[in-house]
């Protein structure tokens, strides 16, 4: 069962590019939306393994979306992409629990590498938690 990615960007062409890269270069399944509020709903409903979000979006920006996602799911990795790369926004992203910060324009290898890394990290997190739970049961 392929991992499911959710891509959020207010620019449809960017959504199209990212989904095309993922579709052509990975086996992952990509869902896209240009509405960050819808994206939050989708994440709440569950089923996604990774979120890629633009930083600057109308209504709800990337950092706010990250905040909101962290309220519902602590494990899902979030990658922030921005055309306005500043150190402050990068630090804020990482501080809020974002997995990584990628500035536009980017090489497709860069984004693919980050996605793989994030998914592996998420897998490890999941395994780690399961093992801890099993250990609790054994000990319990």
């Amino acid at each position: 069962m392929p991992e499911k990615l959710l891509i959020v960007d207010d620019e449809p062409d960017m959504l199209k590019l990212l989904s095309m890269i993922i579709k052509e270069k990975t086996s992952y399944e990509a869902s896209i939306t240009n509405n960050p509020l819808e994206a939050l709903e989708l994440v709440k409903n569950g089923g996604f393994d990774l979120v890629i979000a633009d930083l600057k979006m109308p209504g709800l920006d990337g950092i706010e979306l990250l905040d909101a996602i962290r309220q519902t799911d602590k494990d899902i990795p979030v990658i922030i992409i921005t055309a306005f790369g500043t150190v402050e926004s990068a630090i804020e992203t990482m501080g809020k629990g974002g997995f990584d910060f990628i500035t536009k324009p980017f090489k497709k290898e860069q984004i693919l590498f980050t996605i793989d890394k994030a998914l592996k990290w998420a897998e490890l997190q999941k395994e780690n938690r399961m093992l801890k739970e099993q250990l609790k049961k054994v000990e319990g």
């Binding site: 960017m14 590019l17 055309a83 980017f106």
Partner: peptide, 21 residues
């Protein structure tokens, strides 16, 4: 300039991304 750069970087990312693909 920063604002302009952001506005330019978005289309550039798309152009370069598609070109690369």
């Amino acid at each position: 300039a920063a604002g302009v750069a952001h506005e330019i970087n978005n289309p550039l990312a798309i152009i370069l991304g598609f070109t690369d693909l």
